Amino acid sequence: MFRNIKDEAEAINIQNKLNKLIVINNNFDFKGLKRVAGVDLAYWKVSDIEYAVCCIVVIDSSTEEVLEKVYTVSSVSFPYIPGCLAFRELPLVIETVSKLKAEPDLYIFDGNGYLHPRHMGIATHASIYLNKPTLGVAKSYYKIQDVDFTMPENHKGAYTDIIINNDIYGRAIRTHKDVKPIFLSVGNYIDLETATEIVNRLVSTESHIPIPTRLADIETHRIRTMYKNVGTSSANNQG
């Protein structure tokens, strides 16, 4: 997947074509939401070789019980191009999803979706291949067209919309009082109001980001440390 892309222009051309497949409406009865997957990746280098791990943690959204954990470790060959991160990450995401025993109802990515110059952040790009609702939650703000976000009021649940050219790209949300905001954008097959409600519901007292992506982030750090400590000569082994 994406291995034959020649340059940034070709990658952007693909994004512009896929952009027409974005549906920011609910295509799922989210009142029956149960299995929610958090997706995160981490990188490291050994000599001149770059590696990445993709971790997916699935929880029961009602009980917060962890239902499943899977991961994939591999070398990464696609270069880092700002705005084209999905071309690096999506092959690992797809491979890791294939290891899940049951399909999640929703994927939450540590990253952006619609909040992207071409509305094609990793959450949106992945949804087209997964054919499942997705949303993106980023811990830092991705500035587009020099537009800054407005800081939400300092109370739980406060938010401000990120508006660029009269289009709402996403939201800055304060999930706890006295903590910095997170940046939510829809991925696909879900609207912003529903995404906001789900994110606020899945935030615990222990973290200002949703439980599934927090657990996935913890897993990526654990696996990365494990592979760095034992060496990466067998880094294409997958768990």
Rank of each mutant, 00 (worst) to 15 (best):
Y159I: 05
D148Q: 13
I162S: 04
I122L: 11
H119V: 02
R118A: 03
V137Y: 00
N166Y: 03
A126D: 00
R171A: 02
K143D: 12
D148H: 11
G157H: 01
G113L: 07
I164G: 07
T150C: 13
Y141E: 13
G157K: 05
F109G: 05
R118E: 08
I144T: 12
S98L: 02
N112V: 10
V137L: 00
A172S: 15
F149E: 08
G136E: 05
L130V: 02
D146E: 15
A158V: 06
A102L: 13
N154C: 09
P152K: 08
M120I: 04
P117A: 07
D148M: 12
D146C: 09
K139N: 08
V137W: 06
H125L: 02
P104F: 10
F149V: 09
K156S: 14
I122W: 04
T134A: 08
E103I: 07
A158Q: 07
R174D: 05
Q145A: 15
I128D: 08
Y107V: 02
D148Y: 10
T124N: 05
D105E: 12
R171Q: 14
K143L: 08
I173H: 04
N154F: 05
K143T: 14
I122R: 04
N166E: 15
I163W: 03
Y114W: 11
T150L: 14
A123W: 00
Y114V: 07
K177Y: 01
G113Y: 01
T160M: 12
Y169E: 05
K143W: 07
I173E: 03
D148I: 02
L115Q: 05
D148N: 14
R171H: 10
E103M: 12
D161W: 09
Y159H: 14
K132T: 00
K132L: 06
D146G: 09
T134Y: 04
V147T: 13
T134P: 02
N112P: 11
E153K: 15
A102Q: 13
N165D: 15
Y159L: 06
G111D: 07
V137K: 01
K99P: 03
H155M: 14
H155F: 15
H125M: 01
S140L: 11
K156Q: 14
K156D: 07
L106H: 03
